[in-house]
Design a protein around this nucleic acid. Structure first.
Lengths: 207, 207
DNA sequence: CAGAAACCTTACTCACCGGTATATTGCATT
DNA sequence: AATGCAATATACCGGTGAGTAAGGTTTCTG
């Protein structure tokens, strides 16, 4: 709204500028990685989709792996923060879990979330794979902790919280493979219904 | 047990020989595709793992895409036959579904099943992608049909059989991403417990 | 205004990989 | 024996893609 009267940008503006360009590169890259796979996507393709040249990407990000890691960082950070927040949300454990799962599953259908889901550890160095695995593990552990809370307060029934967490996450990860936002399907509606399915199972309930 | 007294092989033996070599190539390829991804696996790698040379692979299979399609063919055929068989198995619909899902999920942890799960349509020509999609669709439709049978005979409760099928398959596909048979975990035990989880949900049942 | 730093391009190198040409060996059929 | 095909290898071609070198232009800083 308020126009900047001077054509000269401040240091902060320049920094923000740079950051927004970096983010644009990462977003474009994440989309193409998700669409065609990491190995099948060349940085020339990514550059072309932004009408820039490949060395420009190298100006903002050191190499192809850094591009991938940048995408993952954004996705994992969001997920970890959401999981942190979910643990101290109101309601019983089952409600907290369901709310978090909805957030988790919806995010998995967006650019950076999808990238976290679709990337496999073989696409990066062994060191970074270990870090990636560790972050995914933290998310898994937080889901498991919510389930265990539910077992204690009686709002969740299950035998093996660990396997349960794996099963839930698997079911909610899979749409990242097939969901196409362009088809107009409503993502939040979709995940809500999937979570209800997972909550209830398919065997008849007497009650 | 009965040794062939002659060093000369019959035409059938030679044909069987050829077929077993073709299968060996496909198995080695499937393993490496699953491990490192289709694009990240070179035919030189596959050849080296069998101590043969790349042209030998071309002797048995026309090109890299044919190698992939050969793996998928084996996997999809097995899955389609299993689904066919499951529909006319004894028991109520819920039991039939659970039995099939167990078969499905276990197969997804073996070389060719995993390959079906992990392959994405972008890895092949548009034509073959359409055929691949059609076969996966047939499997999905058969799962959905089993669920609808269950809705009719009352052994399965759900609102949306289509989404339900997607959710179940997703949950049971995901282990293909992380399961490591070398870790000694028992696959059939694992899938049995996952299916129980999916059958019951996590909300408490009064009964 | 002068020099430095940031930004971005064109043009290149190098390695890898899918695919092929061609040679060799050896069994099979006539 | 002659011919031919199956099965394999070595050596090569051409394309592609990650990453770099070098330079030009704009923007900041002293």
């Amino acid at each position: 709204m308020n126009e900047n009267p001077s054509p000269f940008r401040t240091a902060e503006q320049r920094e923000a500028d740079r950051e927004s360009k970096r983010l644009a590169v990462l977003t474009a890259a994440a989309r193409m990685f998700n669409e065609r796979g990491f190995h099948a996507t060349s940085l020339d393709d990514v550059a072309a989709s932004l009408s820039i040249s490949k060395p420009t990407i190298y100006h903002y990000l050191g190499n192809k792996e850094q591009v991938l890691l940048g995408c993952l960082k954004i996705g994992l950070t969001e997920l970890l923060e959401a999981a942190e927040a979910a643990r101290q949300a109101p309601g019983n454990s089952a409600d907290r879990l369901k709310n978090f799962l909805a957030h988790y599953a919806e995010f998995n259908l967006r650019d950076f979330g999808r990238c976290v889901i679709l990337t496999s550890e073989g696409d990066m160095s062994a060191q970074n794979a270990a870090l990636f695995r560790a972050d995914k593990r933290r998310i898994h552990d937080m889901i498991r902790a919510m389930i265990e809370d539910g077992q204690r307060d009686g709002s969740i029934v299950c035998e093996d919280a660990n396997l349960f967490a794996l099963t839930l996450a698997g079911a909610l990860n899979w749409p990242a493979r097939w969901f196409d936002p362009a088809l107009g399907r409503d993502a939040s509606e979709l995940v809500r219904r999937m979570i209800d399915i997972l909550a209830s199972g398919f065997l008849p309930r007497k009650a």
